[in-house]
Design a binder for these strands. Sequence first.
DNA 1: GCGACAG
DNA 2: ATCTTGTCGC
Length: 236
Amino acid sequence: MEIKQLHDWKVSASRAIEIQKELAAKVITENRFGKIQYVAGIDIGFPKNKETARAAVTLLNFPELKLLEYVVTDSLVAFPYVPGLLSFREIPAIIEALKELKTEPDIILCDGQGIAHPRKFGLASHLGLILDKPTIGVAKSRLFGSFDYTPCKKGEWTSLRNSDHEEIGAVLCTRDNVKPLYISIGHKISLQSSIEIVLKCIIKYRLPETTRTAHQLASKKTPLSISDNGADTIHI
DNA sequence: GCGACAG
DNA sequence: ATCTTGTCGC
């Protein structure tokens, strides 16, 4: 797949913020895709130290959700973790893993926020622009925005809004009585479609966690299942 | 000034 | 994110 070099990655925090402000205007918040045949999930881990990132990518067919492919790569990261600048730390490592994917995904679920971000430009939106491909932000915790109540029944969700009351994402419950996921538009997809796709990917298992299993396969522990916060278990 | 803060 | 002890619910 084509990977655009939109800017330098070795930048200062203040420059990174400027880049985000410039690129945020290019994010498309409506559906710009056809038939979805392949969906990819990406997760990053730091198994050794803060400088070595292990990126795991899983590729499933859709909507069957059969695991067709997974790749795991290790790479050095230079940018520190700064709330709001996560993409500058993780995307270079994500790109390395995506390069090894044989099949090109039609849509990518990212672990992190999309436009539910202080500058409307989270990791999912950033990756979406680089690949010019639909992406969805699927975060395990809140970064920005507020909501009225915490949904606790499967499929239930509530809007995540900024201080101007604009809907910037959704707090979505994917299983009964389990911590909700924070869904937001990455690029080239509407919030409604993002929610629908995330729910479809979760019927069999939660795709983001599937990627974590790939991490474990890479570390040769080869588990048959993993548990997410003790409340959700997936199997491959 | 004081918290909050994706991974 | 990562590490790790203690507690709660099914």
